[in-house]
């Protein structure tokens, strides 16, 4: 049996590994991309710059290609340990090797600049291309499945290597006498399962338990280096509210 909480200091904090299922420690030496509000603590000498910060221009031009999420992201620069966490979700790191993985924008916490971030054609999702490590959160442990599969939009964390999904609509329940009554009167209601994302082809699909639509907490503005951004102007937050 353990006795009491574990005490961490800069020499014992894990290097690019989980502190516990809900927190991840990045050993920073250089630059990492970080989503706003996902850093809960850090040791060392780290500064946080907005994406528009001048000296970062060459880095941005190679690694960040998502105009609508510019307001959600900052670059952490320096040396030290950075602890990441998100809504008490399970946090995991993933290594890509010359690969591609698409992940729900709100669930991506941070990524190494060796990866390139691109906006997916599916709204609310971001694609990472290249080699390197990234950190993502999920409600409950991530479950990997292989296509063919149909997934509730709320349960989708992301997908790797397989073609982008398409929409699948289930209209079977609208047929027949009962279906007609249901359509005309609304009596009987909807099952909530009329719409899924359908995956086919070879690859991996990442599932979570549902994406709880908690009230979006306004992140603490990290000092005056970051211009204030209203929640409405923030498409990433909007996407999360819409459940994408």
């Amino acid at each position: 049996m353990t006795t009491g909480p574990v005490v961490w200091d800069p020499s014992t904090l894990p290097t690019d590994d989980n502190v516990n299922p809900y927190a991840f420690s990045v050993a920073l030496n250089g630059r990492w991309f970080l989503q706003k509000g996902k850093m809960v603590a850090y040791y060392g000498n780290i500064t946080f710059h907005p994406i528009g910060y001048g000296p970062l221009d060459s880095l941005i031009s190679t690694s960040f290609h998502s105009p609508t999420h510019v307001g959600d992201w900052v670059v952490a620069e320096g040396q030290g340990h950075m602890i990441l966490a998100d809504r008490a979700y399970d946090v995991n790191s993933y290594d890509l090797e010359q690969g591609n993985l698409t992940v729900r924008a709100g669930n991506l916490l941070a990524f190494a600049p060796t990866l390139a971030l691109k906006q997916s054609i599916i709204p609310g999702f971001l694609t990472l291309i290249g080699s390197g490590k990234f950190v993502a959160a999920s409600n409950g442990p991530v479950h990997f499945v292989e296509p063919p599969i149909r997934v509730d939009p709320q349960a989708l964390v992301g997908w790797a290597d397989c073609p982008s999904p398409c929409h699948h609509y289930d209209h079977a329940y609208m047929r027949g006498v009962l279906g007609g009554v249901r359509r005309l009167t609304g009596i009987g209601g909807a099952s909530g399962e009329e719409h899924q994302y359908e995956f086919v082809g070879a690859g991996q699909v990442l599932l979570q338990s549902t994406e709880v639509l908690m009230n979006e907490l306004v992140a603490v503005e990290p000092g005056h280096t970051v211009p204030a951004q209203s929640a409405q102007a923030n498409l990433g937050a909007l996407g999360r509210q819409l459940g994408f």
């Binding site: 599969i149 149909r150 079977a172 329940y173 909807a190 399962e193 338990s209 549902t210």
Partner: peptide, 12 residues
């Protein structure tokens, strides 16, 4: 429902 395989229908 989170995901399904095969031919499955969900009827309220």
């Amino acid at each position: 429902m989170l995901a399904y395989r095969g031919q499955v229908t969900f009827t309220p």
